[in-house]
Amino acid sequence: MFLAMLASNITLISHWTESRGVYDDICYLRQAHLFQRFGWQGLDTSLARETDGYLAAKLRSIGFPNWNEPTRAPCHTQTADGGKWVMTPPPGTGFVLALFPEGFQVVPLYVVANLFIAGFALYALWRAREKIALTLAALFGALAIYFMINPTKASYSMAPTMVVCALAGLFTARLFVDERPRRLLLIVAVGVLLGLSASFRIANVVLSAGYFLFFGLSFLTRRSRETFMSGLVLGLAFLVGLLPVFAANFVNSGHPLVSAYGGQDTAPPSLDPAVLRAYLHDTQFPLMVIACLGTALLWRFAQHSGVRRLALLLAGNLALNLAFFATHPVFTQYYVIPILMLSLWTLLFAVVLTRGPPQGIDTHQADGLRPPEVLSRPQQ
């Protein structure tokens, strides 16, 4: 079933065009063009570098009314000092598009992303050892592969984001399920991936909120060297993952902590009934319910203390992210998909990586909780 869905996705993707009329697409493709033209110096997105007419040609191909006026181009803004016009999206999506030949970038990007997601789904299916785990792996794997077409096609930034969420979910689950001596290495991997996700969508930086809340509270409640080092390593690894964003900010805005988004007018957070109704009537709402319910069930039935702590992390991360987007002044069909996929992948891997007691042995017996006289009786 997974392979059939993957083949169907690839067939659909092979007929996609890079001139579908979406303004953000042009910006991601322009960033890729700059990387291919100037190498790492492509981080500089100033319109002064638009000397080959690439942006104008792309805008004209989608019928943009002011295609010949660079300062009217979508997702470009003037820096605070008024010195230049730069792009607002972070550089990650343009970088991954630049890995493929110009004119044929979107199709291979989505094909590769689909292959990765199908690989994660097959891995979860292979690791499942019990009926419940096998069922969950089959259902969610099919859902994850389907989502690589809709809503992932809505934005080029979503394809790499989905891959990062799946990988971060796997490492997060291993961090709490296995609790191996290599725990710090897993924390480094999770931190780098969470930071790197912001290179594809700035809003992805919120994906780390629950992690910092959990590790911060862990240190406050258990003041130990281990909890301190875990939080410190996570923070440092997260900053390493953010380096591409810092570099782009420094090149374009003159300061690593000043984003090009700062030059745009943005509404303050507020509870807009129209936005809330939009989420209630969108596919994202049942996914929110599933993620919240799955987190609650993981807490309720977990027989491993690490898995219970994982449920707390997921609950905090879901609460913070959903609160952020509920107060966001704009709604789209994919805004909360990253946090939902990160949570659901983590839940799935927590289930399939957790081994139950051997068959034929009672759970209480395996935990050493049955009285000796009961253990000595022959089981019927």
Rank of each mutant, 00 (worst) to 15 (best):
V96S: 05
A73G: 01
R308Q: 14
L318P: 13
N321A: 14
V251H: 02
S259D: 03
A133T: 10
E179Y: 04
T266Y: 07
N68G: 04
A142R: 07
D24V: 05
R174G: 07
Q359T: 10
F38M: 11
I62C: 05
G210F: 02
Y110K: 09
H76P: 04
S218D: 08
F324C: 10
L43S: 02
P269N: 07
P89L: 01
G231T: 03
V289N: 08
R225T: 11
Y28K: 03
T11A: 15
P74E: 02
R60V: 00
L369N: 08
Q333M: 06
F250G: 08
V352Q: 08
G83N: 05
I361Q: 14
W40R: 13
T79I: 03
G241P: 09
S46T: 12
T93D: 06
A133G: 15
G83T: 11
A260T: 08
V275W: 01
Q380G: 10
A32S: 13
T79N: 06
A267M: 14
Q105K: 10
S230M: 11
V374E: 14
R37W: 03
F120S: 02
A159L: 05
G254S: 10
L55R: 08
P90R: 13
R308N: 07
G92E: 00
S230F: 04
F2W: 04
F219W: 14
A198H: 00
L375V: 11
V352D: 01
P89E: 00
F200P: 09
L43T: 03
P372V: 10
R72A: 15
V192D: 00
T71D: 10
L207P: 03
T152V: 15
N68R: 12
G262T: 05
A80H: 11
L134R: 14
F147C: 13
P181R: 15
G306K: 09
A302E: 04
G92M: 02
A137S: 13
D25F: 11
S305I: 03
V245E: 00
L194F: 10
V233T: 15
R225A: 13
Q105H: 04
P151D: 06
V96W: 12
S376K: 14
T227D: 09
R37D: 03
R225V: 09
Y335E: 03
V112E: 00
A32M: 08
Y335S: 13
L257R: 11
A311G: 11
E69F: 06
A248Q: 15
G191W: 02
